[in-house]
Design a protein around this nucleic acid. Sequence first.
RNA 1: UGGGCCGUCGACUAAUGGUAGGUCAAGUGCCUUUGGAGCACUUUGUCUAGGUUCGAAUCCUAGCGGCCCAGCCA
Length: 563
Amino acid sequence: MSAAPEPRPSNFLRDIIAEDVRTNKHGGRVQTRFPPEPNGYLHIGHAKAICLDFGLADEFGGHTNLRFDDTNPEREDVEYVESIKNDVLWLGFKWDGLYYASDYFGQLYEWAIKLIKDGKAYVDDSSAEEIRHNRGTLTEPGKDSPYRNRSVEENLNLFERMRAGEFPDGSRVLRAKIDMSSPNLNMRDPVMYRILHAEHHRTGNKWPIYPMYDFAHGQSDSLEKITHSMCSLEFADHQPLYNWFIEHLGIFPSRQIEFDRLSLTYTMMSKRKLRRLVEEDHVNGWDDPRMPTLSGMRRRGYTPEAIRNFVAAAGVSRTNGIVELAMLEHFVREDLNKRALRVMAVLRPLKVVIDNYPENQTEEMDAVNNPEDVAAGTRKVPFSRVVYIEQDDFREEPPKGYFRLSPGREVRLRYGYFITAKSVVKNDNGEIVEVHCTYDPTTRGGNAPDGRKVKSTIHWVSAAHAIDGVVRSYETLFSKPNPDEVDEGGDFTENLNPLSLEVIANAQLEPSLATAPVGGRYQFERLGYFCVDPDSTPGKPVFNRTVALKDTWAKVERKQSQK
RNA sequence: UGGGCCGUCGACUAAUGGUAGGUCAAGUGCCUUUGGAGCACUUUGUCUAGGUUCGAAUCCUAGCGGCCCAGCCA
């Protein structure tokens, strides 16, 4: 091949894997895994890990397992297992092996016995408080436990009895015998097993003891012959321990590599806090369209392609950055622009009466379904004497630069006619409730035979044909770019945006939307992208606003008001 | 303040000792039957100070700044 080398943007993870493949490490084999704990729903931060784990393996002809890190029965549940599988598939990835850390409980137990026999692990009768106290601090070394030098026989006996369920929760732990004065706190005789008489969602009551993350994760990787175990930065301090267990067990040497988590402005990824939002009813469940969960984004109308493109564009490194939400929204718009069918909907209706249009006439106007995709075809939209337009699209006193309808001004009704505003009708409060216009019959479809131009095209629906719909319009869940930015003693819930959800009860929709399927994604022309919510009922669709279209006029107006 | 990790346009990220580039955002213009989309153009950056080198964002030293670690959570 003589083609110029592809100027392919790389990242340090791909470089590491490429180098390993080049040097034929592990015979050039690439095996990764995505290892969620089934204790909550996946969010956009997990999407990054998923794209990396699956995407990179795929690039090198490798394989990826989905493995549930289910070592803490107290917080885990099958509900989460199912949602995680569902979300990974939705994102567009298929795992090769499906495993659970709990599949390895037997093997892990054997390995613990081996370490005890090798004098590398001991049973500690200290209380949790005593262990914490003896661990030392960031600046002071820890102290050896009084139980540290028990005989192998006694350790074996005690550990077997722990496993047999003889002891109550919290009474003993199994610890690795490493170095109580290590500057790395993870190496100060970390706990390997704790006693937990809890029912596990898969192993039931078989085990009264459960391995800790550190004694399960690396070994699980090793058992699955994972070559590249990618995880987030906060685990970097665990890597020496990860390697210590592999070395002292003499098992397959998986390599841990850390990368930075994804952070986004105006949202937050802490599972603990997301759970609070759900449990304290700040949102309507894990799949509330305002949530950064994959199920929330799916319901909101985000596409897997958009999320994948975004993740790829945001890149990966070892810095702690915060990506602007605007970047995510860009990729959502970019994807939806190519595929969403255009349709006309009026969110805040203002009645327009076309005085010179025949009373009982209806015409079928041809409308393009997607100007970005001719294959999407056209559809008929009914037009009649009374139409609704957006309240925003009429101003009795138009400000400078306002091109839409105003007294005496001629505009185009999209795919309809040119109309000119003549007069308004107001209610007792002085609010405009009706605009009377005339139309030019020669402009059918939206073109004037004499070639004259209008400055604006506005959308509309025929009042006689419109169907009612509910539209849920969303803003960011938090009003600050960093929701955790609170005064001393404050709480992130103070930064919840009170305007994050606006329900528009009586939007007027073009009749073709009567049969819109749940999950269907549309562009409401000039407004944004909208997705049909499962709450829809026959004849009364409910739409979620996925993301608004860019609004140049709003920007201009904002700037004018700042002057 | 012990250890670990990290500092490149406003944000994210490339440049792997040799032209500081891309995407988003912002701005300007063109175009437009969506003030959408598209097209063209523009602005802004290597944390600081030394050093090595013909040449440093890249290597070294020091400083400054940020993140992570003291669960029987993951």
